[in-house]
């Protein structure tokens, strides 16, 4: 977390940094404490899914895609980061009730912690993805340096959505169930294990409006095609997210007070 060092110019920032780090570490420790394989489990989830999809679709959908395993794997780890963040986010207040009851606890830190914790699984999957790509016989180009850009966009997008979901859930308990359905559908509606080119022309607009479509596509273009992704949609996502993030965090802060009242 050395990239947060620049924030540490006074006591409050030092406190936020330490609070953030300890809570992320706690989440990770608690999840794997006492297990034999520890954090290695995070690989196995994605690998198991990869195997399933590869076995089912390799001969049909996969035929037209070059290096199909890498193609699925990149989509899977990015999508898993997305879903596990949002699933945790929607329960933020319920699971962190005691934290938010602590005087002076900064509520806005919660979505950061969630997105960061789930990001670690993604970061662990990424080298594996690179290995797959290499085994698939694809050379890395210099464009791989643009990877952090997509990464940052997904991070910020998740931050926005996490804060939003956490806040909405306080007043609308249906959100959790709605999210569950949306994420199940989303898995099939986003080209994770198939190619965008098989999408009928008339639905393309809907795909185009989905930010995760562009994010996953971005990763693949960089890693598999060695090309710079289309910048316009990605930059638009970035601008919109940055524009709405402050309001959403404020919204989250207000939701905390409401949550504490409806206990």
């Amino acid at each position: 977390m050395s990239n947060f060092k620049f924030l540490c110019n006074n006591r409050k920032h030092r406190f936020y940094r330490d609070l953030f780090r300890e809570l992320v570490l706690r989440n990770i420790k608690v999840r794997y404490r006492g297990t034999l394989l520890g954090i290695a489990w995070s690989f196995f989830y994605s690998l198991a899914q990869l195997v399933v999809f590869y076995m089912i679709f390799a001969s049909s959908l996969g035929e037209r895609i070059r290096d199909y395993p890498s193609y699925i794997f990149i989509g899977l780890i990015s999508w898993t980061w997305f879903t596990s963040s949002l699933f945790q986010a929607v329960d933020t207040f319920a699971t962190n009730r005691e934290l938010t009851r602590q005087p002076g606890f900064p509520t806005v830190i919660l979505p950061f912690i969630i997105v960061f914790t789930t990001m670690i699984d993604f970061l662990l999957g990424l080298p594996l993805a690179l290995i797959f790509v290499r085994i698939g016989g694809i050379e890395f180009r210099l464009v791989i340096l643009a990877l952090p850009l997509i990464f940052a966009i997904q991070f910020l997008l998740l931050l926005l959505l996490s804060a939003l979901l956490a806040a909405i859930q306080v007043n609308l308990r249906d959100m959790k169930h709605l999210l569950n359905i949306m994420l199940r559908l989303g898995f099939f509606l986003i080209p994770i294990f198939y190619e965008p080119s098989i999408i009928p022309q008339k639905f393309l607009l809907f795909y185009f409006l989905n930010p995760m479509f562009h994010v996953i596509k971005g990763y693949r273009m960089i890693l598999l095609d060695g090309q710079l992704p289309e910048l316009l949609p990605l930059i638009s996502i970035l601008v919109i997210v940055l524009l709405f993030l402050p309001f959403t965090l404020k919204f989250l802060e207000n939701a905390k007070y409401q949550f504490m009242e409806t206990l």
């Binding site: 030092r14 406190f15 780090r21 300890e22 809570l23 706690r26 606890f105």
Partner: peptide
């Protein structure tokens, strides 16, 4: 030990 650190920091201290 881990709980002391986490709880203290949640309570408003930094790690140092």
């Amino acid at each position: 030990r881990e709980n002391v650190y986490i709880s203290s920091i949640i309570g408003g201290l930094d790690k140092q």
